[in-house]
Each structure stands twice: as C-alpha cells, then as structure tokens.
C-alpha cells in the first residue's frame, strides 16, 4: 500500500493503493471517477483511455503509481476545463458527439472523446484519414464509427468556421434539412 498524490483533472488528490493497482482501478474504485471505462483490461479496446500530460494512454496498462507527477485528465475533467477556460456548456467535442448521435451505448465514448480531444489539441484540422488513424485504438461496437467521424468533423468545422459534414441521409430526408437540436 502506498499513498499516492495524483493530479487528476487539476485536483491534487491523495489516495492509497497497493502497487499492483492500475490507474484505471484507482480512478474508478478509489476516486469514484467511473467515467473511464473498462472493456478488456489488457490494452485491446481503448475504453480506458485517459490523457496523461495531454496524451491518450490506456489506464488499464498504467500503474496508478506511475501516474504520480503527471497531469491526468479523465472524461469528467473536460467540461470543468472548458468552463474554466471561459467556455459555456460542455467541451465542443462532447457537444458534437452528442449532437451527431455518436453516443449510442456510450461505453467506448469517454475514451473516444478524450482521444479526439487530444488529436484536436495537437492538430486542429486533421483530415478524415488522420482522424480515423488517431481513433484506431478505440473500439466502438455501436456506431460503425460513422457518426463519431462526423462528430469530430463537426467539432472541427465549428472551430474553423467551415461547413460541417452533411451525410447522405440528411440531404435526402424530407424532415431533417434543419436538424432540431
């Protein structure tokens, strides 16, 4: 058992955990930050993705002790950070995921949104292939990724003030030319 001082979402948090506990276990079961999900617990799915010093890493393959001294961002931290930065509502990535219908069961999405957030921080205007590659460590079983890509592109369109993507069904469908959001 060791006492860990972790910087999570800007808070300095003290907790105690045995050495063999992963960051994912400590976040979820010691700190109550259950937004980070577990889908395989061994590096295969990306559901546990959190940002460590701004980079997406797998919390199921990171020891909690190894995260001491780094800045950890979980999904719970995106909205407060956005508000602190003077924004309103939620982080634009979260908002775009919600609007684009990307949040089906939502289980893969905390990891997905954090990966997307990190991508956009590094490259504010990636093309579709770059987005696909960046998200290729996060498995989603519900969406077929289509609305996820649309969401990321929508967030980009907003920040670059360009045209958001228009999937075929929106062009063709009598009721949805104006999406009511």
């Amino acid at each position: 058992m060791r006492v860990l001082t972790l910087d999570v979402n800007g808070d300095r948090l003290e907790t105690a955990a045995p050495d063999h506990w992963t960051l994912l276990e400590v976040l979820r079961y010691k700190l109550g930050l259950t937004g980070s999900k577990q889908g395989c617990d061994k590096g295969d799915c990306g559901a546990c993705t959190v940002l460590v010093d701004g980079k997406p890493v797998l919390a199921c393959l990171t020891l909690a002790a190894e995260a001491v001294g780094s800045k950890v961002t979980t999904i719970e931290g995106l909205r407060p950070a956005h508000l602190e930065g003077g924004g309103t509502g939620v982080d634009p990535v979260q908002d775009a995921f919600d609007r684009c219908g990307a949040l089906q069961c939502g289980f893969c999405q905390p990891g997905m949104m954090l990966t997307a957030r990190a991508l956009l921080n590094e490259n504010p205007n990636p093309d579709r292939t770059e987005i696909q590659k960046a998200l290729s460590g996060n498995l989603c079983r519900c969406t077929g990724y289509t609305q996820i890509l649309e969401a990321v592109e929508t967030a980009i369109a907003e920040s670059t003030e360009s045209e958001p993507p228009r999937p075929a069904w929106t062009q063709d469908h009598p009721h949805v030319r104006e999406d009511a959001l």
């Binding site: 259950t34 937004g35 979980t74 999904i75 719970e76 995106l78 919600d98 949805v176 009511a180």
Partner: peptide, 24 residues
C-alpha cells in the same frame, strides 16, 4: 421526425452515466 439530441447523450458525454460496474 427531427434529429434531437438523445435523452442520455449529455450524461454519456460527460462520464456521468452510471453503468453496472460504476455502482459501488
């Protein structure tokens, strides 16, 4: 007939949604 947000979208977007293993 319109593309509204989902009722639980924001809860899922923010990590607030509670799944079975989130229950302690």
């Amino acid at each position: 007939g319109k593309s509204h947000r989902k009722i639980d979208g924001m809860a899922k977007a923010t990590g607030e949604a509670v799944y079975a293993d989130d229950i302690q």
